[in-house]
């Protein structure tokens, strides 16, 4: 067989064999068969080109190059086809049921009360208030007397307290920390003071003998009741939504005067009347007032020079209102199913 014939035959063999290769291994074997360095069929023919008579050599050489290129192209195409097939096979085999549950560590969560406390703190931090904590065990002086609640005052009934001994008790409100702060620094004072408080209340759906309050205090020259209103309105909007409206009703606390309870229009029913707002359209969220001159005098501030406002809110109450809780006790039971809800 002439070299030309051999080349043509090899070409038709390659055309038949290469497309039949179905794996990387088969195609590699075929490659060796045609292009193997020692005994590759095409390699052998190419090696024989130099023995071809000189006048035929150009045409043989041309064909040889042509066949080589064609076979190489066939290999390339088939290799790509095999790769695609195996890729498709792998992708098909790796198909998953995306509706199966995810696998990761369970997230931890902040207790609802502290999450609420944080939201409240964030609003006041944004207004430039410092967070200052104070002792939970207080003397009679800080818990009552300095706050303008002398012994035998009828208003002492508002706070039935746990005593460690005569004159030493669990604080019944965070207002006691007002005194600590003002004793330590001169105005301007701008603080909030969160913490636990204790009262001898019987437990029911809205009362627990231990609860959380956040107290706020701002004292400076030129602080007015209108400032109190503006600040707490801003808070109500920050906490309960920018559309909220506030209302202030006169109230009574021995340590503030004038005193006011702060009402916000019901964020559950948008003021239309519901169970949460007892159909009034308004929800009481905190007590507040101008710091009583006696209190300022007790810490050595001149009430002729300084004025201030104070406010206090029950964190449980805010949390219960916000998250539609109907019983305060679930907050202290810590059932995992409750903790996982918020």
């Amino acid at each position: 067989m002439s070299v030309l014939e051999q080349l043509n035959q090899l070409r038709s063999e390659a055309e038949g064999e290469i497309v039949k290769a179905s794996s990387q291994q088969e195609i590699d074997e075929l490659w060796v068969r045609f292009f193997g360095r020692k005994a590759g069929e095409l390699t052998t023919i190419l090696r024989g080109v130099k023995d071809v008579p000189a006048e035929e050599r150009p045409s043989v050489g041309k064909l040889a190059n042509e066949v080589k290129a064609q076979i190489e192209e066939l290999f390339k195409i088939q290799k790509e086809r095999i790769y695609q097939d195996s890729l498709n096979e792998r992708l098909a085999s790796e198909k998953i049921d995306v509706t199966l549950p995810g696998v990761w560590n369970k997230p931890g969560r902040i207790h609802l009360l502290n999450a609420t406390m944080r939201r409240i703190k964030e609003v006041f931090k944004g207004l430039g208030y410092s967070v200052v904590s104070g002792p939970e065990v207080e003397t009679d002086y800080y818990n009552f007397e300095a706050l303008n609640i002398p012994a035998n005052h009828p208003s002492r009934e508002m706070w039935d307290s746990f005593f460690l001994r005569e004159g030493l008790l669990m604080r019944s409100q965070t207002s006691s920390n007002q005194i600590h702060v003002m004793e330590k620094q001169d105005p301007p004072v701008r603080i909030i003071s969160p913490g636990k408080c204790y009262r001898r209340d019987s437990v029911d759906a809205t009362h627990f003998w231990e609860f959380h309050q956040i107290e706020g205090l701002l004292v400076d020259e030129k602080v007015t009741f209108s400032d109190l209103k503006g600040t707490l309105e801003l808070f109500a909007k920050g906490m309960f939504g920018s559309r909220r409206k506030t209302r202030f009703n006169p109230s009574y606390f021995p340590f503030t005067e004038p005193s006011a309870e702060v009402m916000v229009d019901c964020f559950v029913c948008e003021g239309k009347g519901c169970r949460v707002c007892k159909n009034s359209g308004w929800i009481e969220i905190m007590g507040s007032g101008m710091v009583h001159p006696h209190v300022l005098r007790n810490v050595g501030y001149d009430p002729e020079k300084y004025t201030g406002f104070a406010f206090g809110m029950g964190v449980e109450r805010v949390a219960m209102l916000t998250y539609a809780l109907d019983d305060i006790r679930v907050l202290f039971e810590n059932d995992q199913r409750f903790l996982d809800q918020f």
Binding site: Y129, V131, P188, V189, L218, D220, S226, D227, L234
Partner: peptide, 16 residues
Amino acid sequence: NTLPDVTPGSVIFHSD
């Protein structure tokens, strides 16, 4: 409803 005109210079510190 107004906002207080507070003397600047009070240090902000968070004990929590």
